[in-house]
Simulated scan of single mutants.
Amino acid sequence: MKNIIRSNFQAHPFHLVSPSPWPLNTSMTLFGLTTSLVLTIHGFYNAIYFIYFALIGLILSMSLWWRDVISEGTYIGNHTLAVQRGLTMGVGLFIISEALFFLGIFWAYFHSSLSPTIETGAHWPPLGIQSINPFELPLLNTIILLSSGVTVTYAHHSIIKGDRKGALVGSVFTVILATIFTLLQGIEYAVAPFTISDGTYGSCFYFGTGFHGLHVIIGTAFIGVGLWRVFSYHLTDHHHLGLESSILYWHFVDIVWLVLYISIYYWGS
């Protein structure tokens, strides 16, 4: 009887995760995605189809994984204050790693632009490259993204005050503005007078803005899940770590775009 009681109560506030297939499955799909991507870049026949299969598998695996995490935190009650502190620290470290990733992108850009080589005509942008006007679509996208930062902050303060309607309205407008930003970014790519194969300038431009666009799409999905959880009464004024993490991530995306706009679109043009 004592053993049964001891097994039902633990002497610490931390969540001991039960065995799960999703970490291994996610690793396998990521390996398949990167491998098929490299094969496609090197021109292997039909390798691009494996990218689609791996990407679908990755999305399904991560969706089921986060479904279990949501169940643990919402229904089972495993996310104590100690666990929430650990998760917050994990999100913070993840954002720091993303910041270092973009630091590498900006390093490559400034390395090429501050001291243009003879191959680029000792000029930046290189001779023959017509840069994008920073006061057209890029400026509109900047206004839209900064506006989404305002709406997501409104959603954050609303959920803290227990205002469910305000959290829903702020999250909905954030998702709408993020979607518009992504569509306008696609239009900009379609009408851009240069491509990713146009030397160092094209590579740096599309590498920086493209990965930022990918982060915008991920952040939109992140906030969309938070919106669904608010709508489903999962989150409260004192337990809304998922939505708070997505908001923190979105502010990071806003800051990166400001640096991109100032350095690549405005100064770089």
Score class of each variant (00 low, 15 high):
K2C: 05
K2E: 14
N8T: 12
F9M: 09
Q10K: 15
P13V: 07
S18V: 07
S18R: 15
P21V: 05
L24S: 12
L24G: 08
T26F: 10
L30I: 13
G32K: 03
T34P: 07
T34G: 12
T35M: 14
L37Y: 07
L39W: 03
N46M: 11
A47L: 01
I48F: 09
Y49W: 14
F53R: 12
L55R: 01
G57P: 04
L64R: 10
W66V: 04
W66T: 05
R67S: 12
S71E: 11
E72S: 09
T74Y: 13
I76G: 02
T80S: 15
T80H: 03
A82W: 02
A82Y: 00
Q84R: 14
V91E: 04
F94Y: 14
I95C: 05
E98Q: 12
A99D: 04
A99I: 12
F101A: 06
L103N: 12
G104T: 08
A108H: 10
Y109V: 12
S112T: 07
T117P: 07
P126S: 07
I129Y: 11
I132F: 08
I132V: 12
F135R: 13
F135Q: 13
F135V: 09
L137Y: 06
L137I: 11
P138Y: 13
V150G: 10
V150S: 07
Y154F: 11
A155W: 01
A155H: 00
H156E: 03
S158G: 02
S158P: 01
G166I: 02
T174P: 08
F181N: 08
L184I: 05
Q185R: 08
Y189P: 06
S197T: 13
D198F: 05
G202A: 03
G202T: 10
G202K: 10
S203D: 09
C204Y: 05
F205I: 01
G210N: 03
G210R: 03
G210T: 01
H215S: 04
V216L: 15
I217C: 01
I218T: 06
G219S: 14
V225Y: 01
L227I: 01
W228L: 13
R229C: 02
V230R: 02
Y233V: 04
Y233I: 03
H239W: 00
H239V: 03
H240V: 02
L241M: 12
L243C: 03
L243I: 00
S245L: 01
D254T: 08
L260M: 14
I264S: 10
G268N: 06
S269Y: 14
